[in-house]
């Protein structure tokens, strides 16, 4: 391991905090790998050695886990991962075009990083935001309802250091390393930023209210709506 002594000390301290969350230390491996990405920007040989030593595993056992999960990077990641969803729905609704445009604009292909180390372009699989298609995740923050143009604008803002706010997320996109630390379970204090939900998330609820249906919790009592609200005809 070639970590500087103070880095190693911090890693050990953080790792023991992570292990304390679980009845069995090995459960800490995934968060610890996220943690090492916050230091190295990827799961480096040092990270493998550190996790192996800390959890009394062989290096093979650690890399077995690290190479199984797609969020763990084997090459130094850019400051920002641009993850364009290309699974059927987002891809066909325009994710393909967004990816093509970004690839052309940045001059990199899938899983490649720009020479300035700023951006890693990645084709990602469904990120559970299909009602916001096409979706782009920047460092795993939601950028909903994207177009090729809007995606390029995001890149330009990040490159220029201009404010860049995810659709549903904190006020500013954190860096890959910052997000990796958060994913290791170290609270970054940004939970209270950003909206409660985007428009598609509340479309049904709003429609129900507009139709005069019961807004269950609006009356704060939280009492149940009348069963009549359900149309038993559907049961036929």
């Amino acid at each position: 391991m070639s970590y500087a002594p103070e880095t190693l000390r911090a890693l050990k301290r953080d790792a023991s905090q992570i292990m304390a969350r679980y009845p069995s230390p090995r459960s800490a491996l995934l968060p610890m790998l996220h943690l090492t990405q916050s230091i190295d920007g990827y799961v480096s040989p040092d990270a493998i050695a550190f996790c192996a030593e800390t959890l009394d595993l062989t290096a093979s056992e650690v890399s077995a886990v690290a190479t199984f999960y797609s969020q763990f990077k084997r090459q130094p990641n850019g400051q920002y991962t641009l993850g364009v969803c290309i699974t059927s729905l987002c891809g066909l609704m325009g994710g393909d075009a967004i990816y093509e445009r970004l690839s052309e604009y940045l001059g990199v292909g899938n899983d490649q990083t720009t020479d300035d180390g700023l951006f890693t372009l990645e084709k990602i699989e469904c990120n559970a935001a299909c009602d916001y298609a096409p979706v782009m995740m920047v460092n795993w923050e939601f950028f909903d309802n994207q177009t090729p143009t809007s995606a390029v604008e995001v890149v330009e803002a990040l490159r220029a250091g201009r404010p860049c706010r995810p659709t549903r997320g904190p006020d500013q996109v954190p860096t890959f390393k910052e997000v990796s630390r958060t994913l290791a379970g170290f609270d970054d204090g940004l939970a209270n930023q950003g909206p409660s939900a985007g428009a598609p998330s509340v479309v049904g609820k709003d429609l129900a209210a507009a139709q005069g249906g019961t807004s269950v919790v609006a009356d704060a009592a939280g009492s149940a709506p009348a069963p009549g609200a359900a149309d038993k005809e559907a049961d036929k």
Binding site: Y42, P45, S63
Partner: peptide, 25 residues
């Protein structure tokens, strides 16, 4: 040795940075 990688790329192996495409420190 352990299973490395996933799916059709899955393979038996040790932690070998070259084989797994892990950049050196």
């Amino acid at each position: 040795i352990a299973l490395q990688m996933r799916g059709a790329n899955q393979q038996i192996g040790t932690f070998d940075a070259d084989v797994l495409g892990v950049a050196p420190v």
